[in-house]
Design a binder for these strands. Structure first.
Lengths: 349, 349
DNA sequence: TTGATTTATTGGAACGTTCCATTTATAGGC
DNA sequence: GCCTATAAATGGAACGTTCCAATAAATCAA
């Protein structure tokens, strides 16, 4: 049952009556080997129950074929989608990416990065944890390991970023709400330590300004980027003197929370209060009411990130261009019909 | 920018004016080293930007400290919860588990397992993909790598299993439905190639039999274990001559799909048709109506699996006891009020 | 047949660690 | 001051691969 000492290429060599070098060549699929010999060797490999020791190999080879994916919150389905997109690409390149979760914890992230480096990864795709310090990736950089950021970025860093056009997405969504006739708007969820937050809030603000919403009619309520955070945000907003009538949410999770809280208060999302989400996760379509959301093509961005990574590894560089993915607003039911009539205004969108 | 040749313990040794062996000892936190020397070495490590080469180390050490988690569907939030539970345990043991996704594809799973083995994992926690062949884990076994199955099992295999009590969970849920006064029941979703399916369906059947539901009043509709599968199942069931009034769903995803489909037909889940889910994912609580579901303490099972794994590694065995986790029914709103009155029956639950 | 060329195979050194057996330094006992 | 015991540091071999240079075998041109 429990095997004796692990088999090595020497064992195979003996079994097949060749030298260790020949075995090595076969293992690497070299064309220099006579087909019959290769067959013989492969049979020995099978018989002996040999398992290749990549660690030993990497001692000589410059490149390992391990790529790590460091994700800040695995329980968010959004990131699972991202991971799936990447895997599609890596699979066809014959690479098995290893995923590690940092649970939004910079200390854990440090450990994870260290461990991955020690493992000798060829490259890393990272969605950095909130509160990541600027120096967290310096070790990677000095070690010359290619890194790309996906979805999130760090305030100042030369590491290439693959992310959606957050500003434009927020702008589109906000314009949609204004077009529907809303005049008192709120931005729900997220905290200012995330660059993404700045970008989305920026899009929101620009839309309000250019489309003639006074600053005093726009509200910002920070909060957790989760369902729970959304619930809390709505409570806060409705407690105001002149509560808003429409919300752009930092992400879909927040939007779900907001809709939930509306229902609990006897308000109907869509008709009584308009809500737009961000990310367009699969659930958005299936919610009641279906959530209008900014679609960012998560899986597509994942694929993109994987491609960039592959190219970086191949060309032995640690630099690459940023890639800002197109976004578009998917209009469903959570913003209800136009309010124009009610307010005596034309359709402004 | 791009660093020159990677630093090794020799470089540190030179820098710190000691021997490579001393550096190695410091790296391993040996108490044999004079504290001042250790400090000196650690400083050199920092200065040089050294990164430990675990591959090289594993060449000599018997044990790597890598543990792999092989998961069949990362996009199912259920598995993300499982992963999170495991990580809690591994983190406190100073281990970074690597997660790999098989996307429910046995071929991909084969690749993933191979890659993990080549990496020299110390152990593997696996939720096997549907359609896994019996031989898929033989290599692992002959290599003496500890493996535990989490949540799912293979028909015949000596590998220890950590899973919830599916039979009992299904029994409880079904009894609940019957207690509510339902007499025509259906089991929705899943396919018979999964052992879990057999177990859950078994509990459903036993409850029906012992609580006096005739076999001709129970229906089974197989289907995908996803929202989409749930939608399809409901369509099928409602097209029958005498449609059921209550469903036990293979998992929560199916249940969500069923509720969605009900709404689309103008039926209200809970009052017009009762539905129970399985797994009790976090969304269950937040759904409209909130989903009654069998809670399996996913994260707890993850922790358990991790502990078992740790113990197996420590005691160098590939055997361990199965662990069947307790379940309990979380009653929410998706089964509505009792039907007893309507049917002239007492409360049987 | 001989030498040159091509095709297949091979031995040895190297990769960066750990671990064991030694050596060297320090302290203690008398 | 000498011997012994303990503490601290060290050199060398080993781990399982890859790669290079070298060899051996087969083919070819003359």
């Amino acid at each position: 049952m429990a095997s004796r000492a692990k088999a090595t290429i020497f064992d195979i060599a003996r079994e097949a009556g060749v030298s260790k070098s020949t075995v090595s060549l076969v293992l690497q699929g070299s064309g220099l080997i006579r087909p019959e010999t290769a067959v013989k060797v492969r049979k020995a490999i099978e018989d002996v129950g040999y398992v290749y020791n990549r660690g030993a190999a990497n001692l000589r080879k410059a490149h390992s074929n391990v790529i790590g994916m460091v994700i800040n919150d695995l329980t968010n389905p959004f990131f699972a989608e991202l991971a799936v997109g990447m895997e599609r690409v890596f699979q066809s390149a014959g690479i098995v990416p290893f995923i590690a979760n940092t649970a939004e914890n910079p200390v854990r992230q440090e450990e994870v990065l260290k461990s991955l480096m020690e493992q000798g990864v060829a490259g890393l795709i990272v969605s950095p944890a909130r509160g990541t310090t600027p120096g967290a990736f310096r070790r990677l950089e000095t070690a010359g390991v290619p890194v790309v950021f996906a979805m999130r970025r760090l305030p100042e860093s030369r590491i290439p970023v693959i992310a959606p056009d957050n500003h434009r997405g927020a702008f589109l969504a906000t314009a949609h709400l204004i077009g529907k006739g809303h005049r008192r708007l709120v931005f729900f969820g997220g905290t200012s330590d995330l660059v993404v937050y700045q970008e989305r809030l920026g899009g929101f603000r620009e839309a309000c300004e250019t489309l003639g919403i006074a600053a005093r009619d726009t509200l910002v309520v920070q909060g957790e980027t989760s369902r729970r955070g959304g619930i809390a945000c709505l409570e806060t907003a409705l407690a105001m003197a002149e509560p808003p009538t429409a919300a752009l949410c930092f992400n879909d999770a927040v939007a779900f929370g907001v809709m939930l809280a509306l229902r609990k208060r006897g308000l109907e999302p869509g008709t009584d209060f308009a809500v737009v989400g961000f990310d367009d996760v699969v659930e958005a379509e299936h919610y009641m009411p279906a959530l209008t959301s900014v679609s960012v093509d998560t899986a597509g961005l994942g694929e993109r990130a994987a491609h960039v990574m592959l190219k970086m590894i191949q060309s032995r560089t640690t630099r690459a261009e940023d890639h800002i993915g197109a976004v578009n607003l998917v209009v469903r039911e959570s913003c209800g019909p136009n309010r124009s009539a009610e307010l005596g205004l034309g359709d402004a969108a």
